[in-house]
């Protein structure tokens, strides 16, 4: 599955340097992403490893659960068990705007290309997209609608800011 990255207005297919590890599996060498429950159970050991660490949150797991450790995490992934389970959109905004998290926020699970613009605006920076591998298509879709009304943490200039700046 392609991992697409949205960064500073550009888009790219990037290599996934993280291994997502099941709760029962032994930890491989290198950067890993673990579930919230595994992170909570093995927190000390995981943080002591000499590799980047990520946690994935299921759709009923709020980022407030890991708020105190965000500075130590290289990636927080939000799982979408179904495309229409939209809790992850709130989680991404809370991670960025409430908790000031600046690392990678990744959308995983059932993620549709057409949702990527909403996700990017909410604060996601990487996307595991099952239905796309073409960067050009991804970029076209993500920038298709020029006007945005809502101030979010993504830094895009809203219609209001552009009106006031006229």
């Amino acid at each position: 599955m392609a991992l697409l990255e949205r960064k500073d207005g550009a888009a790219a297919v990037i290599e996934d340097r993280f291994t997502r590890v099941d709760d029962e599996a032994a930890l491989p060498v290198g950067p890993v992403i673990v579930s919230l429950s595994r992170f909570q159970a093995e927190r000390e050991a995981l943080l002591a490893r000499d590799a980047d660490l990520g946690v994935w949150l299921d759709s009923d797991e709020s980022p407030s659960e890991i708020a105190g450790d965000l500075g130590k995490l290289a990636v927080v992934a939000c799982n979408f068990p179904a495309f229409n389970d939209g809790r992850g959109f709130s989680y991404a905004r809370l991670l960025r705007e409430r908790h000031g998290y600046e690392g990678e926020v990744r959308a995983i699970g059932e993620v549709m290309l057409e949702q990527a613009p909403f996700m990017a605006r909410s604060g996601f920076s990487t996307f595991e997209l099952g239905d796309v591998s073409d960067v050009a298509e991804f970029k076209a879709v993500i920038e298709e609608v020029r006007t945005v009304y809502q101030p979010t943490g993504d830094g895009r200039e809203t219609a209001l800011q552009r009106r006031l700046g006229r």
């Binding site: 229409n84 939209g86 959109f89 709130s90 905004r93 613009p117 909403f118 009304y149 809502q150 219609a159």
Partner: peptide, 13 residues
């Protein structure tokens, strides 16, 4: 305007 294509609230329960 606020609700149009709201990024956070387009996939509500």
């Amino acid at each position: 305007q606020w609700s149009t294509l709201h990024p956070e609230f387009s996939f509500l329960p």
